[in-house]
Simulated scan of single mutants.
Amino acid sequence: MFSLSPPPPLPPSPSPPKHHLPLQQTQTYNTHLHKKPITSSIPDFIFTAFSIFFLFSSSSPKPTSAPVNVIHKFPFPLNPRKFFRIPIMSSPSSRAPNRFPNPQSLSDWLKPRLPSDSFASWGVKPGTKNVHNLWLELSEGETTLLADSTPPIRTVDVVIVRVIGGEQNNKLLLESHQELSNGHVRNRCRPLSEKMKPGESVEAAAFRAVKEELGSVLPEGLDGDIVKIVPNSYSKKVEERASASYPGLPARYVLHTVDAVVEGLPHGEFCTEELEEYDDSDEKRAAHGAVSCKKHYWKWVDSYSDAKI
């Protein structure tokens, strides 16, 4: 009997070359070798939709109505004013204290605020007053100093009494000059005038001015029958000018002017003695160095052109 031996094993089949791989395997291989970024299809979809929309909108008929106004949008509100802060009104001008402890404190305050040569002439130059006079004016409330400027501004209300006389009231009384307590002469050439007190009416100030400066030649018991203010003669104006009494200190004068008839005055030139301007007080004693007016010299003129009003 013949015995059959098992057949020898078949040799392994060789691997096909890479280019002979099946198509599916080749694609998989290439995919692993070259990874390309995956792009989304959304932009293509948007572009396609936009193209279709543009195609249909361009073919649709245009409306025949009036064009609509375009409203431009701004990055701020259309009514921005309601967001603005309302500006605060300027505060009133600051004022220097009306009552310095003494004339020296006023002098110390004024010295750095005024030209040195002008301040040094106070009370020395003929016709000027000194710091004692200004301190008295502040103490009595006749003068205020606006301190928010350099130099400060002296503000004073003044009553001007244009005393008229003559047979037809065609004369005007002028003060030609003054004789001061320090011996100086102060030229005036202006009508009767006086600084007003706080809260004083024009009529009361006019009556007081006549009494203080003309009273020495008037009958005793000066009353309202002697001084008569002309109706509708009142006027008011404001002037800013350099002060003759206080060089270097600018002044703002609020001028209240009235015409008045004063009975009993001399017809020609005459002189009067000044009554005490300030009552005896601690303030007056503290300002004992103030320059005062001792005598007033008056004359009548024919017209208003000769008066410095």
Rank of each mutant, 00 (worst) to 15 (best):
P63F: 00
T64H: 03
T64A: 00
S65P: 00
S65N: 04
A66P: 12
P67V: 03
P67H: 10
P67E: 02
V68C: 06
V68P: 01
V68D: 07
N69C: 09
N69D: 11
V70T: 14
V70W: 12
V70G: 02
I71E: 11
H72Q: 12
H72S: 12
F74M: 12
F74S: 14
P75I: 11
P75L: 09
P75C: 12
P75W: 11
P77Q: 08
P77H: 07
L78R: 11
L78Q: 08
P80M: 05
P80C: 01
R81N: 05
K82H: 08
K82T: 11
F83A: 08
F83N: 07
F84S: 10
F84M: 09
F84W: 04
R85E: 07
P87L: 10
M89K: 15
S91R: 14
S91P: 05
P92Q: 03
S94K: 13
R95S: 11
A96S: 10
A96I: 00
P97Q: 01
P97V: 09
P97H: 03
P97D: 05
R99C: 09
P101W: 04
P101N: 12
P101I: 06
P101E: 09
N102G: 10
Q104A: 12
Q104R: 10
S105W: 00
L106T: 04
S107Q: 09
D108I: 08
